[in-house]
């Protein structure tokens, strides 16, 4: 029993629960934003289950693929995959199983929903991790595209089709992801250099990276507010979203013009809070 519990703990950490939870929240918020009958528990549970399994599966597959570079980085060398606590083949099998079951449930629920969930997984594992991550710093764009798929998938499931609001919400997430990942790559620049993974800071320098973060934050906030307006959000909720957006913009400008480790960390954390708050607002708005 304790062996199973230990194994579960290893695999649970390999799914990056916080990141998976945040992406799952965007997917469910996207679904609810369609103002479909959100009390349909079967559909909600199906959507949550398929998204969770697919996102967790792709994360485990990424860990499996990146186990060699994870072992070279101080931040990740204790992961179960890189420290040998779980075997490579087992991780691959678990990742594939989670992914196939997740995408399978999604396809069974709705073909278009399933296609978008699969696209997210494909962009994340194949395009981002396997193909581009070790070749170019711009790989994060495809990481962003895959991160934007859950919210688009959720809205498409609720709506039955892809609309401009769903695309704008997805664009908001896509543009938010550099704010998150670039601050991270600045904080752990030495780790990435040790593993020979090209990042914006190592390829273009800190100045360009900070400007990129600022621009993507401005555009992400703009996209979220436009999507909120398109959703017919009440003025009060739009006001609140704008206030939170201004906080994001101020930190983005602070990191550009008065950079420091503290501002970097603050922006990294605030960006997560911002996205979670935006998703909660979308959900509250339609309840």
């Amino acid at each position: 029993m304790s062996v199973l519990a230990t194994k579960f703990r290893h695999y649970w950490s390999l799914t990056k629960p916080l990141q998976t939870g945040l992406l799952l929240a965007t997917g469910l918020a996207g679904y609810m934003s369609a103002r479909c009958p959100v009390i349909n528990m079967g559909t909600i549970l199906g959507a949550a289950g398929s998204l969770f399994l697919a996102i967790a599966g792709s994360t485990v597959l990424n860990m499996w693929w990146d186990r060699d570079i994870d072992a070279k980085m101080g931040r990740t060398q204790h992961r179960a995959t890189s420290s040998g606590q779980v075997t490579e083949n087992e991780v691959l099998r678990v990742g594939l199983l989670l992914s196939v079951v997740g995408v399978g449930i999604a396809v069974a629920m709705d073909a278009l929903f399933g296609l978008i969930v699969f696209a997210g997984l494909f962009f994340d594992v194949v395009v981002y991790s396997i193909w581009l991550k070790r070749r170019t710093a711009w790989s994060i764009v495809w990481g962003g595209v895959s991160g934007a798929m859950p919210i688009l998938a959720g809205r498409t499931l609720g709506l039955g089709s892809i609309d401009w609001i769903g695309l704008t919400l997805a664009l908001g997430v896509l543009l938010w992801i550099p704010t998150h990942t670039l601050t991270f790559s600045m904080k752990f620049a030495k780790d990435y250099a040790a593993a020979c993974v090209p990042t914006f800071p190592s390829t273009y320098g800190l100045g360009f990276t900070r400007v990129t973060i600022a621009i993507s934050s401005v555009l992400a906030a703009l996209a979220m507010v436009i999507a909120g307006y398109g959703l017919g959000m009440a003025w009060g909720f739009l006001r609140l979203l704008s206030v939170l957006s201004v906080g994001l913009l101020m930190l983005a400008f602070a990191i550009t013009f008065k950079p420091s480790e503290r501002v970097n960390f603050g922006l990294f954390k605030y960006a997560s809070v911002y996205m979670l708050a935006a998703m909660i607002l979308v959900v509250i708005e339609v309840m």
Binding site: V243, L244, V246, G247, F265, G266, K269, Y270
Partner: peptide
């Protein structure tokens, strides 16, 4: 925003 930044 100040409250959130104070927490962070």
């Amino acid at each position: 925003v100040a409250g959130l930044l104070l927490i962070i």
